[in-house]
Amino acid sequence: MRTRHSERHRLSRIGWLRAAVLGANDGILSTASLVVGVASAPQARPSDILIAGVAGLVAGAMSMAAGEYVSVSSQADSESAELELESRELRDDPKGEHKELAEIYVQRGLDRTLAEQVATQLMAHNALEAHARDELGLSDTTAARPLQAAIASAISFASGALLPLLAVIFSTRNLAAPVTVIVSLLGLAILGGLSAAMAGSPVVRGVVRVLFWGAAAMALTAAVGRLFGVAA
């Protein structure tokens, strides 16, 4: 019978969790701060506040997508260059590469005889894959995917940014700023708590941390909006 591996580890979801949390957190915080800043200006009309929020959502989502695409594309280029170099080394010096792979297994705890046998069998199966995984630390699960990363970042940012926008839409002009602050802080608290729980970190610490910086950002932009709005 085939044995099923029932253990569940959090490390397997750190990558996508980090990207999703950062994107949604940025979406809530940057859009809410922008909306609160504009709403705090006495002369701002409801349409001005909404336009600022929508513009912030679109610009932020595109910025996140572009930044993630460029960053992950650079990583993908580096990975391709490393694999190409490793492929040449395998072709030009297979014995040296075998010795190098065996030495890696020795350093991980295998005796030399077994390490050489493992290296021989893995290289016979797929030499490049063995060296990519055990020498370079590359695998299919960790491979850089620029387009996927860009789309995921844009979607997570836009999803977070919708929260303060909905707060603006369903509140009156006089209550736009306070309602946005309350709703956005609530969203940040939930997001911080969920991400901390999924990562195995203390939930209270995660919530307090995100609430502190969220409140600070919105307070600062509100002060700027009121100051320059009065001056204007």
Rank of each mutant, 00 (worst) to 15 (best):
A150R: 02
A189C: 02
A149L: 02
L191T: 11
A59T: 01
A81E: 13
F157A: 03
L128N: 09
Q148H: 10
A124F: 08
A127N: 05
I155F: 12
T180I: 06
L165W: 01
L166Q: 00
S159I: 11
M62A: 15
T120F: 07
E135L: 00
L101F: 06
A154H: 08
M62N: 09
G206S: 12
L220M: 14
I51R: 12
L175P: 07
A76P: 05
I28E: 05
E129F: 11
A144C: 00
Q148Y: 09
H9V: 07
E135I: 00
S12F: 11
A61M: 13
G229W: 04
G23T: 08
H125K: 13
V36E: 01
S74T: 13
E116H: 14
P178T: 03
V230A: 05
Q43T: 14
G214Q: 02
L165E: 00
L188P: 03
A44L: 08
G15Y: 11
L85S: 15
V207E: 09
A150P: 04
R226H: 13
A41D: 08
F157R: 08
I151F: 07
S30M: 04
S33A: 15
A127K: 00
A152M: 13
L110S: 04
S47N: 13
E129A: 10
E135A: 00
R91C: 13
H5A: 13
A143Q: 14
A59L: 07
F228C: 07
Q117A: 13
E100C: 12
S139Y: 03
P146Q: 14
A177Y: 00
P164V: 03
I28D: 07
I169T: 10
S73C: 05
N126A: 03
H98A: 12
A119S: 15
